[in-house]
Amino acid sequence: MTATVDGRRHARRPGPRRRNVLKSVSLHTIAIVLGAVVVVPLLFGVIGGFKDTAQLSSNPFGIPSPWVPENYTEIIFSGSFWRMVWNSMFVALATTAITVGLSAMAAFVFARFAFRGRELWFVLFTIGLMFPFAVAILPLFVLLRYMGLLDNPLGVILPQAAFGLPVTIIILRGFFRTIPREVEEAATIDGCSSFGFFWRILLPMARPALATVSVLAIVASWNNFFLPLVIFNDPNWWTVPLGVQQFYGQYSSDTARVLAYVVLAMVPALAFYAVAERQLIGGLTAGATKG
């Protein structure tokens, strides 16, 4: 009787293959749900931009009938839109260059040199992750006004670079520590200085990590709204997020046109992220083995 009961209990337990199937189905379901959460709003915005406001009210999820491509073409052929795109690109690239350059040198020191207080200084950098722009915006505004950097791209570039240093240093330090000491010792024997090893050997080997932090810095700068809103009063320096706000205020009753503007504002960042996705994932995982 006991053997029979034990046999039944053993038969009721799912086998390894069944557990793997259930796990795979669960993971695929979660991935599909998360994908739908991201893709459905994008599709709604893209398709909604080809409608007029009356169609959005009567048939928000249907196919446009008729199609209204003027919502997109009028924005594409607008000089102000491309000026804002250029401003965003300039600010993002300048911010990325400063952030990655300074962070690479700091991460190299934290990863490859042993000195008293190294971990304390590293902790001070990581504490910067706890302070967003909103916390420091008032003293930052006063400081930038005193320095004469209002309505100046440096008033946005320098603070963005400063706030981007902590996470960039953390990622690059983790990657730099994975480079074997033997490589550095061999370079030193060949007469390479510390800076020469950093410039000629370490940075080329760290291209995946550098690509990762560059993507993060560019996307963060492109999406930054609060700081340019405070710093830029001159419309000639407005970035794309400010343009979205201005466009919404001007055409708040024309929802379809606003959707078209938002979609076009997202295209450059999405395109850049799609191209750099492999480097982003590879760089994040490359430095994950050592901290």
Rank of each mutant, 00 (worst) to 15 (best):
P41V: 08
L27I: 14
P241D: 04
A217E: 06
Q250F: 15
L102P: 02
P132M: 10
V38H: 08
L144E: 14
V39T: 09
V230D: 09
I201A: 05
R19W: 07
G155R: 05
F122M: 09
T53V: 01
A92F: 06
F232D: 11
R19M: 13
V5F: 05
F81W: 07
G282I: 03
V37E: 10
R13M: 10
P132I: 08
V258L: 01
G79F: 04
M105V: 13
E185T: 02
A104S: 15
G148T: 09
P208G: 06
V38M: 13
E70W: 00
T212G: 08
L165M: 03
V258I: 04
N20T: 12
V240T: 01
I127Y: 11
Y251Q: 13
G128A: 08
A92R: 06
I171Y: 01
F176Q: 11
I201M: 06
Q245H: 02
Q55L: 03
F115T: 01
R116A: 13
S78L: 02
S253L: 12
F198Q: 12
A36R: 05
T212A: 14
V142N: 06
G101F: 10
S88I: 02
S78Y: 05
V68K: 09
W82R: 10
D254G: 03
S57N: 07
L149D: 08
L34N: 05
I47M: 15
F108A: 04
F226V: 14
L165Y: 00
L165R: 02
R177I: 09
Y273E: 06
A11I: 09
S103N: 04
R18G: 08
P235W: 11
H10K: 13
P208L: 04
T285R: 12
L27Q: 10
T2S: 10
P159V: 03
P180D: 10
T126C: 12
A134D: 13
P139A: 08
A97S: 12
T126D: 02
W222Q: 03
E277H: 15
P69Q: 06
A3R: 08
Q245S: 08
V230T: 15
N59L: 03
R145D: 14
I75T: 11
I201S: 02
V258S: 03
L280I: 10
L203N: 02
A209G: 15
G117I: 14
A111S: 13
T73L: 11
V267I: 12
Q55P: 00
A187F: 00
L229R: 12
A274M: 11
A136S: 13
E119F: 03
T2D: 12
V91Q: 03
A54M: 04
I179D: 07
V39Q: 05
M84R: 08
I231C: 11
F176M: 15
R173Y: 07
M147A: 14
